[in-house]
């Protein structure tokens, strides 16, 4: 490849990588709900992306490639945390007491808390579809799971979110706030 073309490709790669950084963080945060963990995940993802840049054959596939790297980093992180658990069945315990939880008035906190209670596999699928707008087949590729699993996890995730959020919202009269955002 001629050096000029290589230089341009590199430049475009770095530009796209920089542009994706904030989006990677947002999704990493929706998986971990800890800013420092999300930041580490993004840094690790970017370092790996630069290291393995040559593996990316189709620059149009860069988005799903990047999120795929991050999904691997997240899997590694979870393995280090809880080596014996299958991440699909892993329900994270909640730090708040039920009283604190129900006292939260902020709808954003409420949604994030509910999301953080989802099993990790479901949470990953939900955030990739909702926040990044990936298609089911792209999510399947990113997480290395079958499309059918993407569909069932997404379905279970939304159902669980609806059961918890819509009931809680009505109970706490949050519904007025919700109407403004829907």
């Amino acid at each position: 490849m001629n050096p000029l073309k290589l230089y341009c490709l590199n430049k475009e790669f770095k530009h796209q990588l920089t542009n994706s950084r904030a989006r990677l963080f947002r999704v990493a945060f929706s998986w971990s709900h800890q800013s420092d963990v999300a930041d580490d995940l993004v840094q690790e993802t970017m370092a790996k992306a630069i290291k393995y840049a040559r593996q990316l054959r189709d620059k149009n596939a860069m988005e799903s490639w990047l999120f795929g790297i991050m999904a691997n980093c997240w899997r590694d992180y979870l393995r280090k945390q809880k080596p014996m658990d299958d991440i699909d069945d892993d329900l994270l315990s909640h730090n708040d007491t039920p009283e604190q939880h129900y006292e939260r008035q902020d709808i954003v906190d409420l949604i994030q808390n509910t999301m953080s209670e989802l099993p990790i596999g479901q949470r990953q699928v939900l955030s990739l579809v909702e926040l990044e707008g990936f298609s089911y087949s792209e999510v399947a590729e990113i997480l290395s799971i079958p499309v059918g699993t993407v569909m069932s996890r997404l379905s279970r995730a939304r159902k669980q979110m609806a059961e918890k959020l819509l009931t809680q919202a009505q109970a706490k009269d949050h519904i007025k706030t919700l109407r403004r955002v829907v």
Binding site: R26, F29, S30, I107, V108, I111, Q112, M115, L126, S127, E130, L131, R158, M161, A162, L165, L166, L178, V181, V182
Partner: peptide, 11 residues
């Protein structure tokens, strides 16, 4: 659809 909007709002 509400859940979809809520998740987008939250993040």
């Amino acid at each position: 659809q509400k859940i979809h909007n809520m998740v987008q709002l939250a993040y």
